[in-house]
Design a protein around this nucleic acid. Structure first.
Lengths: 218, 218
DNA sequence: AGGCTAATGTCAGCCACTGACAATTGACAA
DNA sequence: TTGTCAATTGTCAGTGGCTGACATTAGCCT
């Protein structure tokens, strides 16, 4: 089943390590093929063959074709949520969100690199944005993440998401900005981590004050 | 191909009429099966068989399985856009959006009924909201519709969507409210048109003033 | 070494979807 | 009315995503 803490765990036996290597190899091969020749035109058989496993094994690691495309995103999001939970309680909500995002982007240069090259992840992001089927999946995933974030923010502030609309509203605005930033970056030239980091920061700074004011004057 | 104005057109020859009837029958049969036994568990073969056409014919009318689930939505959205374009130029943007939505809901009782019963459409809406694959598709469609609406609003006000953020922001807020309203309605008890009409109206009234103020004091 | 179990391979099959070609059927003119 | 043309449909074969069942391999532990 799902390993509770596969990341920093001492990776007990050979079995575990082998499994992790297969999984990483599948992700990397998949993203390489997706970004090179396109998502739709890449078959599961190609991915499996590149890693030298059977097609069936692929589906034992990933429930479907889309999931492998979002595997790295999953890691980034998990990091983001962890960081958000770790933010000091006296930080304003939007500030906490902002800080968590920045830490997440910085992390990409470190933790993610152990699985795939950073530039491959960046190209994958652009590939997702330009593949209709993946855009749809991405939006759904985002809306689910939004709900989780809203819950977290609400708890931080001692609120109930169903009683007080502010957590969801803040998160909706935040997510909207993040999505636009990702889209604009994907269409632009500079496809580096630094670029999207800067863009995100700038966009968040624009919406920040407007919301902060209302939040503080309660 | 896609008929430009299939709705109120005099439906020239027998061929056209027959085509329209087949299409309507496919939509109706599909929605009936989807709502009764679920989207995933319904096969294209079942739908085709219910209308007594070949599977291949189904795919000549709809590019994929999802499209037939959104066929009626397409009509409603087209109506909405038409109505929005027809709103007087002196109406405030949010007011125009609001009016167009209300007209669209009222239309459902009339125009839509010629294709499928209203309650089937209502149940289909709930079915979409509770089917992950369709939720994803719905979100993507919504984001595309948002862009169209933003362009329309911008033209009304003589603005450029890329230069002035207000059209997109207003539309994003508007769409967010619409989506939440749809979701809440879907989870509630009263699955009537009147109910969602009222809910939409109420939700829009809540966000309306807050945005109106900023918009008017430019 | 040998038994246990998790991971993998193989195989058969369902379903969404597509291209190609043949058969049917309105439309329209002679 | 009839014959021609073009649009609609059916049939067939094939690809690719995805799953269940069962046999096989390979790490783990005594």
């Amino acid at each position: 089943m799902a390993t509770p803490t596969p990341q920093t765990a001492p990776t007990g036996g050979l079995r575990e390590r082998k499994k992790q290597r297969t999984r990483d190899a599948l992700i990397r091969a998949a993203l390489e093929l997706f970004t090179e020749q396109g998502y739709e035109t890449t078959t599961i058989d190609e991915i499996a063959e590149a890693v030298d496993v059977s097609q069936r094994t692929f589906f034992r690691y990933f429930a479907n074709k889309q999931d492998v495309a979002f595997a790295v995103q999953d890691m980034v999001e998990a990091r983001f949520l962890d960081e958000l939970r770790a933010r000091p309680a006296d930080e304003a909500p939007l500030t906490a969100l902002r800080s968590a995002v920045m830490v997440a982007w910085d992390d990409i240069g470190n933790a993610i690199a152990s699985v795939i090259p950073v530039d491959l992840h960046m190209r994958s992001y652009q590939m997702i944005e330009s593949t209709p089927a993946l855009v749809a999946a991405h939006l759904r995933r985002s809306s689910e993440l939004e709900e989780q974030i809203a819950q977290l923010i609400a708890r931080r502030e001692g609120l109930d998401v169903d009683a007080d609309p502010r957590p969801r509203v803040l998160v909706a605005a935040f997510s909207g900005v993040m999505r636009v930033a990702g889209k604009v970056w994907g269409e632009g030239q500079d496809c580096t981590v630094a670029a999207i980091r800067e863009l995100t920061q700038s966009y968040l700074d624009h919406i920040g004050p407007a919301i902060d004011v209302d939040w503080k004057t309660r």
